[in-house]
Design a protein around this nucleic acid. Structure first.
Lengths: 144, 144
DNA sequence: TATAATTAAATTGTATGCAATATGATTGTA
DNA sequence: TACAATCATATTGCATACAATTTAATTATA
C-alpha cells in the first residue's frame, strides 16, 4: 500500500471498530427502551447482576470507564431504585454500589435481549467467536 | 450456555466492540494532539483528503454520523481553516464542504499516524485483516 | 506523630453522538 | 400554479466519555 493510501478511511482498522460499535448500540436502543435503560446503564447493571456489590473503581475496571462517566450514570440508576450508593465503613474513600431487589428483578425482564441482539448481527457462530477472540486479544493488550 | 449467563458482561459481543473502540481512540490521542485534531475531526479530514469536496449528507454516509454531530465538528474545522463551508448554488439545501490548502497540508503531517497506530495493536497481519473483514461484514449489514 | 504522598470519587470543561424538532429549499401533484 | 410532501441542514436536549482538577480519606515515612 502506498504511504498516503494509509490515510484513506477504508484502510483503517479503527474506523469500522468505531462505526460498528455505535451501530450495534443503536440496534440495542429499541430493546433497552422497553426497560428504560441506556446502553451504559445496561452494562453497569450487567456487572451488578453478577457481582451484587462492587465499588466504583472496580466497576470502572470491568467497564473501561472512569468516575467522571460513572458518577452520573450511578446517580441515575440510584434514582431509578435499581442500586444503592453508600460509603464503605472500612475505607470512606470507597463508594459501594449494591443492587436492590428492584434491580435484580430487572434481570428477568432483560433475559431476551441478548438473543434479540444476536438476531440483528449477520455473523454465524464461528464468525462471532472469532470476532470475540480478536477483540479481546486487542482489548486486554490495552490494559497494560 | 444457560439463559441467564447470556446476560453476563463477558458473554457479550457488543461489549468488547464498544470498549475496544474507545481504547483505540484513546491510543490515537497523543498522535492527534500533535496535529490538534480530535478523532472525529481526523476521520472527517480523511474523507476530505480523499474527496476534496463533499456535502454533509454524503459525508455522514461515509462516517455513519448525522448533521447533529457533524455540524459542530465542521464549524470547528472551518475555524481552523482546514475546510470551507458553502451552500450549493444548484440546491441551496446542500452544504458543500471543501478542503483548503491548509487542510491538504495537514495530510503530510499526518502520514505517520497509521503506522504508529498499528504498532499499538497487538494483532498480526492476518488477524488484522480477519478482524477488518468481520467488522465490515457486520457494519455493511447495518446499512440495510 | 506530623506531614507528604497516594488513592477514590466527584466535579468541571470540552467534545461528541443521537433523537426529535425546526427551518428553509426543492419537488411532486392536484 | 398553489400547496403538500420531501429533503438537507441546523438546533435543542439529553446522555455519555474523558482529561484535568479538587476534595476528602488513608497510607507511608521522615
Amino acid at each position: 500500500m502506498k504511504e498516503l493510501d494509509k490515510l484513506k478511511l477504508e484502510n483503517q482498522l479503527c474506523f469500522p471498530l468505531y462505526a460498528c460499535s455505535k451501530e450495534v448500540i443503536k440496534k440495542y436502543k429499541p430493546f433497552l427502551d422497553e426497560i428504560d435503560l441506556t446502553y451504559t446503564q445496561y452494562i453497569t447493571m450487567m456487572v451488578l447482576w453478577d457481582k451484587k456489590e462492587i465499588n466504583v473503581k472496580e466497576l470502572g475496571n470491568y467497564l473501561y470507564l472512569d468516575s467522571g462517566t460513572l458518577t452520573p450514570v450511578l446517580k441515575k440508576l440510584e434514582n431509578k431504585k435499581y442500586i444503592k450508593r453508600s460509603r464503605s465503613k472500612k475505607d470512606e474513600r470507597n463508594l459501594i454500589i449494591s443492587i436492590t431487589e428492584l434491580g435484580m428483578n430487572l434481570k428477568n425482564k432483560s433475559k431476551n435481549i441478548p438473543s434479540k441482539m444476536s438476531n440483528c448481527v449477520n455473523l454465524n457462530q464461528e464468525e462471532t467467536s472469532e470476532l470475540y477472540k480478536l477483540l479481546y486479544k486487542m482489548l486486554l493488550n490495552f490494559k497494560n
